[in-house]
Nucleic acid binder design. Structure first.
Length: 139
DNA sequence: TTGTTTTGTCTAT
DNA sequence: ATAGACAAAACAA
């Protein structure tokens, strides 16, 4: 599938998504099919929650951060500092964990922004803006 | 507004 | 063990 910012691909292992790539097309296309429909719906605004099997690997800290991010409602945003406060850690560490997220959109790290600004995004800030726009988030 | 300091985690020596 | 990087925040001036 493609967006205004380019193609989106899903890397799959044993039926589970292990990585979502923004702006990259991976062959063969049939690997994408089980996930294509949900992502298409997400991009046209008719789907708010991605629900397919995934395999997530990371340190205990990373998983705790990602778990919190998973619970951020569609269209809502919170700051790195707010997550840090919940986990009793630093905003810097939260950003570090998010930068290692291999499943953007499924783990909606685009909903985490800086106190005054957008913060960063692994696949480029244009994607972060695009995803927030799709969700109609108010900043 | 701008610099400077503080901060926790990860990666690579 | 240790040093440097990093998608941030708080503070001083």
């Amino acid at each position: 599938m493609a967006t205004e910012l380019g193609p989106v691909s899903v890397l799959v292992e044993r039926g589970k998504a292990v990585r979502i790539l923004l702006g990259v097309y991976i062959q063969p296309a049939e690997f994408i099919d089980p996930f294509k429909k949900q992502l298409d719906e997400y991009f046209n605004g008719s789907r708010k929650i991605l629900d397919f099997p995934v395999r997530i690997e990371g340190s205990r800290f990373q998983k705790r951060v990602w778990e919190i991010v998973r619970r951020i409602p569609y269209g809502a945003v919170i700051t790195y500092g707010e997550i840090a406060k919940v986990l009793n850690t630093s905003p810097r560490a939260v950003g570090m964990a998010l930068s290692k997220n291999l499943l953007p959109i499924y783990i909606p790290c685009h909903r985490v922004i800086a106190k005054d600004g957008l913060g960063g995004f692994s696949e480029g800030l244009a994607w972060k803006k695009f995803l927030l726009k799709v969700e109609g988030a108010v900043l």
